[in-house]
Design a protein around this nucleic acid. Structure first.
Lengths: 391, 391
DNA sequence: CGACACGTAGTAAGCGCTTTCTGACGGCCA
DNA sequence: TGGCCGTCAGAAAGCGCTTACTACGTGTCG
């Protein structure tokens, strides 16, 4: 790491300040000087030192992306879209932002660790993807953490996860800066804290791009009900995740709206697999078939799980969709090519990621309320069909 | 970004040097002082400033991973494995390394840009995944670039791409530091440059974890030949990529070894699709069927392409494998669930990624010669079968 | 013709941390 | 009891860059 600003400056016969100004732009530099500097930069193959410039400028060009599982295309697609946004924002030359993709493995502790790491690197923005964990303690500490980050100027965007719970009630009144204190001016315990709270909110809130998991599951279940299914199994993901809960809620709501099943039966037909992978779908289906052999259709937590479901059914000697219908969720690229083609709900992962990237970069104005919910679409393929006459 | 070392120091009643030493370790600090400092750190929720510490310590805790397409599980799996290696290396506490995953989209220019960006962030190591581009100019400039980086102390590991060409012949003689100059001591034009070159090589070479693409393709073709196929189509990836070339070479070699096809026929049966995605497989197959309707088996550049191949065959009214056999490459997770299950070559992506991560971190000693080739395995599923009797 | 403004470039003060060098304080041996 | 050494903590000098602030010429206006 030899060549520094000073070297370039010496070579160009100017001061290091001038070199810095040429490279950073936004300050008038005479054409002749500028080109002399640029030549020196090229000759010396000078590369700016990131840490030094971040330190001096109190900023950085890192953008963090937290994903549950980088090997899962669901997250890969979102992360890719976010990163494209970074690239498209910049010219051909160097002043790019760098995306840091962090694999949390779905662990809330890891999530916190990475948040620290990113804070420490002074990330300019952080996009958190994937569902959150329901546990109230975690939710609260995460929310506090994120709000502290936004207070420090880091942009935070949630993508595919529900909006943060509102902070302690009352603190929200950032729009009424000096109107409230009339009531009890002297009694209030920690007026300083309140002041800080208000300033924090002013700095920028946590933005959200949410999927309509509930609505999607509702549509899927309705599709099956319309086909004539009455015994619909549900292989849910990990029960502590919001994504699982919301999808399941949509499913149950559709069932209820149809008067199709009492809560007891719905519960018997719902299996909570431990995760979102294929093997969970397989195991969950085995259990479901034991528990409720009358099942004529199975809804899976997502497409990957659905693949496991299909495999288990096949191994049990049941045909899809003749004997049992199967549906997934997400519409990942491989779903169209599965055997048979998977009926599923398409989530606009690409668009959501792009939008999250824009919000993180500040390229797109924050939506009113801070939350955008992107639309879903039912995709009917060949894995669902009416139940057999005998059923 | 308020609280600094000095704040912590003030609170703990020590100097900032002491705080730094407590946090960095490796220097004796009395137990009482240490715990006082740690308490202050906790109370103030202090987080080290990455840029500042990188600047002062002339090091950083970033590790870059370059991938062609982050949405492709092939790269996701490798990247995930590399990152796990980072996590497993560190204790529960903060001193993690941070992985920076960069999406090059397969573009050599982007690759170079990201390399600059990473260099600028003083990345401790960089893992480049995926095949390289054949273009000699690019190869040379990339190689030069990488060698310069290793010279600067950055560890470079190639994963799933062939080893770098050796540098200009003669410069390799790093083992003979001061033995050569006897020949023409005064005449040599740039003796200084030569000295630098030698020192660079000593710093550490570019390490490689390579896949046996050639061997895998060879095995696959042999499998088809053994089944009795004689008209084997090949939907290759982008022709300028090493991965494409090597797989194709393996295929042709197997054909030749079998005396199965003259080069002219092989060429007629080979279609170069533009990329590695599903649609390329589809289009390529349409072209192949036009060109050579006698085809009874199709080898695809990879599993994703194979999915497109299957779809095209299906749309053409041909059954897999009864009418045409299909095979992929890579054995991605979805391949087992495709319709029908894809015969393919399994590449140990996980292991390769982990290994690359270890090499990048220096956790594992460099293999002799700098290159490790990981094994492949033929996975036979139901997408391949003997050709029909009529064929 | 002097004063003022404007356009450029240099000076220098940090940014927050690490690390060398220096120093204080006991404890120990002779 | 004096000198030496080992242990631990502080002072301070940067790391390489950004960015006020300052300074120097011209061109221009009164």
């Amino acid at each position: 790491m030899a060549v520094t600003l000073a070297d370039v400056a010496a070579r160009a016969g100017v001061s290091s300040a001038t070199v810095s100004r040429v490279l950073s732009g936004g300050y008038p530099v005479a054409g002749a000087t500028r080109s002399r500097v640029l030549r020196a930069v090229a000759e010396l193959e000078y590369v700016v030192d990131g840490p030094a410039s971040a330190l001096a400028a109190a900023s950085s060009d890192l953008l963090g992306i937290l994903v549950n599982d980088i090997a899962d295309p669901f997250f890969g697609i979102i992360a890719g879209a976010v990163q494209s946004e970074l690239d498209s924002g910049a010219d051909a030359s160097v002043p790019h932002k760098l995306a840091v993709v962090c694999n949390t493995g779905g662990s809330p502790e890891r999530e916190l660790t990475y948040l620290t790491l990113l804070q420490r690197q002074r990330a300019a923005a952080i996009v958190l993807t994937g569902g959150a964990v329901e546990d109230p303690a975690h939710r609260a500490s995460l929310a506090a953490r994120l709000r502290r980050l936004t207070a420090g100027g880091t942009r935070i965007v949630l993508c595919g996860r529900p909006p943060l719970d509102p902070p302690e009630p009352g603190t929200e009144a950032a729009a009424v800066p000096e109107a409230g204190p009339v009531a009890e001016p002297a009694v209030r315990p920690v007026p300083a804290a309140r002041g800080r709270g208000a300033r924090r909110l002013a700095r920028g809130a946590v933005l959200t791009v949410a999927f309509d998991n509930r609505g999607g599951a509702h549509a899927l279940t309705e599709h099956l009900l319309t086909l004539g299914h009455r015994h619909i199994g549900y292989i849910a993901g990990p029960s502590e995740r919001t994504t699982t809960r919301h999808r399941l809620a949509g499913h149950l709501a559709a069932l209820a709206a149809h008067g199709a099943a009492g809560p007891d039966r719905a519960e018997r037909l719902t299996v909570h697999a431990g995760g979102y992978d294929r093997s969970c779908g397989y195991r969950g289906t085995v259990e479901l078939l034991c528990r409720a052999p009358e099942t004529t259709a199975v809804l899976a937590a997502n497409d990957t799980v659905a693949l496991g479901v299909c495999a288990a059914l096949r191994d049990a000697g049941l045909r899809v969709p003749q004997d049992v219908s199967v549906a997934g969720f997400d519409d990942l690229p491989f779903s169209a090519d599965a055997a048979p083609g998977l009926t599923t709900v398409r989530l606009p992962l690409q668009e959501a990621g792009a939008r999250a990237g824009q919000l993180a970069l500040g390229t797109r104005p924050a939506p009113p309320g801070g939350t955008t919910t992107v639309p879903h679409a039912l995709v009917v393929r060949t894995s669902t069909a009416p139940p057999r006459a005998g059923a």
